[in-house]
Write a protein that binds this DNA or RNA. Structure first.
Lengths: 217, 217
DNA sequence: TAGACCATCTGTACATTGTAAAAATTGGCG
DNA sequence: CGCCAATTTTTACAATGTACAGATGGTCTA
């Protein structure tokens, strides 16, 4: 149909090359990465519910059925985007903790700030990470990335008697409480219940992470 | 709300009457209430994303275009459901606080339990309440019900210097932190990140509401 | 009581979506 | 060069939201 559009599309394909995924490039170049990029842009712009598989395919310059071969269905594409989001989340949390210095409390607070800032930087992406109805929770990649992020969070809290490989569901209440505090703040802000831009509010909330229960273990 | 208006025609309108389409005349007894009931049942069964306006109309025994007259579009129906959910939420929070006794800390903890139990009792309904992309936040009814619920929450925390009519966004950080703790716990549980059924976990988390900041005012 | 009004509901129609299946394209390998 | 398999398109179909015109019947008025 529009062959000139194809050549233009391939010519302007500026490789962002976020991860180490140089794998297949048959017809389109790297449709898989292009679709993920398109989906990320769509979600960031119109929200998770504003995303559509056909719109992503349109933006990537392919037909509506093209994504099926790479992702199966729309859930597959969203799962891939969420997996990348969890990887970026993990990196942001680690960077935040390291920026906090050496003390455990400072690292915890700094990680809390990083948690909140990551969510506020791209609210729709953070939203997608928790929309489990739209994701394939059985996908190995997603499970791995999720577990990695959760492990970073767990390491920030001294758990009392938690085995190293224990499920997040059975972890110590101190971890759950700290996680819930930060996660709940973010969700209330994203859902319009509170204003995260109120001066000093983020710092005040994150300071609550350092309650005696957490300090004494 | 208006649950006694359906005595006009022959159709008995039991709230849990699924699958039965009572009336087939042109004028339904109380289509508005019937559609809200159908939507609530659909959402509870298949989740917010599994809801469809046509399915709700089908369950109410009317044509696909019938809801338009009462709710405008799908967002209008979801907004009505969310409004009722916030009303029920407010009642549950008040009942929870009253069940806690007279002491401020006990009332706060008991309200926290009620918050969590309300969400876990019908996760999809609670989910809808915060899916602002699907709701008409400008609707006066929803704004009123939301504000009422938020006011109940705010009253449970002694705010330092908050004016009585102040916006939730500018409230004291102690309120935001307490709200975030409970809300975040619920969301993490609903989104499959933690297991709310772990024995004693809810009580342990709610006990964190009684940090010194809250106690000394 | 007759007729008109009007809120309510139906029928139809259209654009959009997800996805299944068959056909077509194309790069790589013998 | 010719075949194979991975990739993409074409086509098709069911479902959805909703706009529009028309049908229906309760109610109000004269």
């Amino acid at each position: 149909m529009n062959s000139d559009l194809n050549s233009v599309k391939m010519a302007q394909q500026a490789p962002s090359d976020l991860g180490a995924k140089p794998a297949q490039g048959y017809h389109h170049g790297d449709l898989r990465a292009a679709l993920i990029d398109a989906a990320k842009a769509l979600i960031a712009e119109r929200g998770v519910d504003g995303f559509s598989l056909r719109a992503a395919a349109r933006q990537a310059g392919v037909s509506a059925a093209a994504p099926a071969h790479h992702f199966g269905d729309a859930r597959g594409l969203l799962t891939a985007v969420a997996t990348g989001a969890f990887d970026a989340f993990t990196a942001a949390l680690i960077a935040g903790a390291d920026a906090g210095g050496m003390g455990r409390q400072d690292r915890l607070r700094s990680m809390g700030i990083a948690y909140i800032r990551f969510a506020l930087a791209d609210p729709a992406r953070f939203d997608l990470m928790w929309r489990s109805a739209l994701l394939d929770l059985q996908a190995a990649d997603l499970q791995r990335s999720r577990a990695a992020a959760f492990a970073v969070l767990a390491d920030a809290i001294p758990t009392r008697a938690a085995p190293s490989g224990s499920d997040p569901g059975t972890r110590d209440a101190a971890l759950v409480a700290a996680w819930a505090l930060v996660h709940g703040f973010v969700r209330l802000a994203l859902d319009g219940a509170i204003d995260a831009d109120a001066p000093g509010l983020i710092e005040d909330v994150v300071a609550r992470l350092a309650v005696p229960e957490f300090r004494s273990g």
